[in-house]
Amino acid sequence: MGRSRLKPSLLILNLLLAPNICAAPPPKAAPEPEVKAAFLLNFTKFIEWPQGDVSASAPFPICILGDDPFGPVLDQILQGETVNGHPVIAQRLNGVSSKSCRIVYVDRDDKIGKETLDAFGPGVLTVGEGESFTREGGMIAFVLENRRVRFNINLSATRKAGLTLSSRLLSVARLVEK
């Protein structure tokens, strides 16, 4: 029996009871730093991280190179999160590189060279801002599209760094550079 034979009265009732079917306004877009912070965390879940030699209790630091656009938001989001059992923390680097970083975020305004990023060594995900970031050897770059935060992926860079990105991550990327 097809739905088309549903009684009109029941259909109307359904329509009335269905909450906010059409008139629902789109949820208010979160502030950009907040979205980016969440994305940073989510990247950890779609990437196969090399085990390395760190101890089980070692933290999983997300380092911010240069200016910190997040403020306390990032810390709040990362609170209680783990990757493979390692607690995720945020580290602010002041021009100093650290070997323990697993994700390095570089804000748009900081003109940091390819070399600086490479210095973090393999197995570190580099995340930057703008189209140019991935073209210049960065791995994932936040871009704004229709005022929404999207990201591009430089697959060859990740591969080079020994990071395996989940196809699901790739499928939602705006642009995947090979």
Partner: peptide, 13 residues
């Protein structure tokens, strides 16, 4: 299959 889309808030995907 939707985890990525959800994680990165991608309605299109």
């Amino acid at each position: 299959n939707c985890t990525g889309a959800l994680a990165f808030d991608d309605p299109h995907a």
